[in-house]
Simulated assay, not measured.
Amino acid sequence: MAFFQQSSREPARHAVDPSLQPWVEKYRPKTIEDVSAQEHTVAVLRRTLTSTNLPHMLFYGPPGTGKTSTILALARQLFGPDNFRSRVLELNASDERGIAIVREKIKGFARQTPRAQVVSSDGNTYPCPPYKIIILDEADSMTQDAQAALRRIMENYARITRFCLVCNYVTRIIDPLASRCSKFRFKPLDDTSTSTRLASIAKAEHIDVPESVISTLINTSQGDLRRSITYLQSASRLANSTSPPTPITPADIQEIAGVVPDEAVSRFAAALGIESNDMDVDGVSKVKGFDDIRRKVKGIVREGYSASQLLTQLHDVIVEHPTLTARQKAQSALALAEADKALCDGADEELQILEVALNVHKAVTS
C-alpha cells in the first residue's frame, strides 16, 4: 500500500524542468510569426493559415535557419495542442531512410483517415483542416528507392495527407518528388536577426552578454542560429559554475566553439609573412627557412587546435587581406584546397599544416 501511495506523488513522467531544457527547444518558435529572418516564407505560410489549403512543401537551406521549427509552428497553429499528436507525424529520414520505412510507417500513417477534431482544451479555436501532415526531416538522406516510393504515396493520399520535406541540399531530392512540392528556401540568418534573438534569450535567462560576445557568437556560428544558441547556453553554464559567476568573454565562446583564437591565427599568419591590420602581433618574428617554419608549426600543433579549423580561418585571413595580390591569394588558396582534400582522406594533420605553411610562405614572399 505504501508503494502505491509513494508512486502517486511522483511527478509526471514526461514533465520537463525548464531549467534543464536545452535553450534551442525552450525558445523554439511557437508561431510562424516568431520565426526570424525568413520573411518571404512566413508571408506565404501566413496565407495558408487563412485558406487552410496547404500544398506539399519542400524546405531547404543551411542548418539552423528554422526549417523544422517553421513547419512545427505551422502545424501547431493549424491543429492546436490537442489534435497535434494525431495529425502530425515527424520522422528523421537520416535514421529511417530505407524503402521499408516508407512502405510501412509512412504509408500506414498516410492512409489513415484523420480523426474528428477534438475541442481544444486551451479555449482557442484552430482551423484543423481535414488532412494530416507528415514531416520528413533530413529528407536528402533518403535513398533513391525510398524517394521513388514516397512519390506514389504522395499522389495516392494527397486528399488526406500533406508532406513537408526538410533538407539541406535540394539537389539530392529526385526531380519527380521535388516537382510535387512548393519549394521554400531558408537563407542563413543575417547578423541583425541573430543578434536580436540572442539578446532576447539572454534577457529572458537574466545573463549579461556584452556586444563583443554576441559578435563572436555570430562569427563562429556563421548564420546557424541553433549553433549560436547552444554556444550561449554552454557559456552561461560555464560562467555559473563558479561562485561568484564569472562574466562571459569572447574567448569563452571561441573555446566552446572549437575555433582557433583570432590572435593565434594572426600570429601564425604574420610569421608566414602575411601582415595583419587589425591584430596586435608585435614581437612576431617572420620565419626565414624550413627549420623556422617547422618549429612554428610544431608549436601551434602542440596547442591541440583542429587542422581543418586552422586552415579554414587562415583561408579567410588570406582571401580578405587588402594588400596581397590576386596571384598570391590564388596560390595560397590552391595549397589550402589540396591540404583540405588530403585531410578529408585521412592525412596527417601536422604534415598538412607544414605543407600549407611552406607553400603560403613561398607565395607571399616571392
Rank of each mutant, 00 (worst) to 15 (best):
S7I: 06
R9P: 10
D17W: 07
P22S: 05
P29M: 11
I32A: 02
I32K: 00
Q38L: 07
V42M: 02
T52I: 04
T52W: 12
T52P: 10
M57E: 01
L74F: 01
S86K: 07
E90V: 10
N92P: 02
G98W: 08
I101A: 11
V102Q: 04
G108A: 14
P114A: 06
V119W: 10
D122C: 04
Y126N: 00
P129L: 04
P130W: 04
P130K: 01
T143F: 07
A146S: 09
A148W: 01
E155N: 05
N156H: 13
R159V: 05
C164D: 00
V170N: 03
T171I: 12
I173T: 03
L177M: 06
S182K: 09
F186Y: 05
D190Q: 12
D191N: 14
S193Q: 13
L198E: 02
L198D: 02
I201Q: 00
I201P: 00
H206N: 10
E211T: 15
S212A: 15
S215R: 15
I218A: 05
N219T: 15
T220A: 13
S221F: 10
Q222D: 15
Q222I: 14
G223R: 03
S228K: 08
I229D: 01
I229M: 10
L232R: 07
S236D: 06
L238Y: 09
T246Y: 09
P247Q: 09
P247N: 10
T249S: 12
D252C: 12
Q254G: 07
E255R: 15
A257G: 07
G258E: 06
E263P: 11
R267Y: 06
F268H: 02
F268K: 00
I274S: 02
I274L: 10
M279H: 14
G289S: 12
D292C: 08
D292M: 08
I293L: 07
K298W: 12
G299E: 11
I300V: 05
Y305T: 02
S306Y: 13
A307R: 06
A307Y: 07
Q309L: 14
Q309G: 12
L311N: 01
T312A: 15
Q313L: 07
L314W: 01
D316W: 11
H321T: 00
A326P: 09
A326N: 13
R327H: 13
R327Q: 15
A330T: 13
A330I: 13
S332N: 08
C344L: 13
G346E: 07
G346A: 06
E350R: 11
L351T: 09
I353N: 00
I353L: 08
L354D: 04
L354H: 03
A357H: 01
V360A: 05
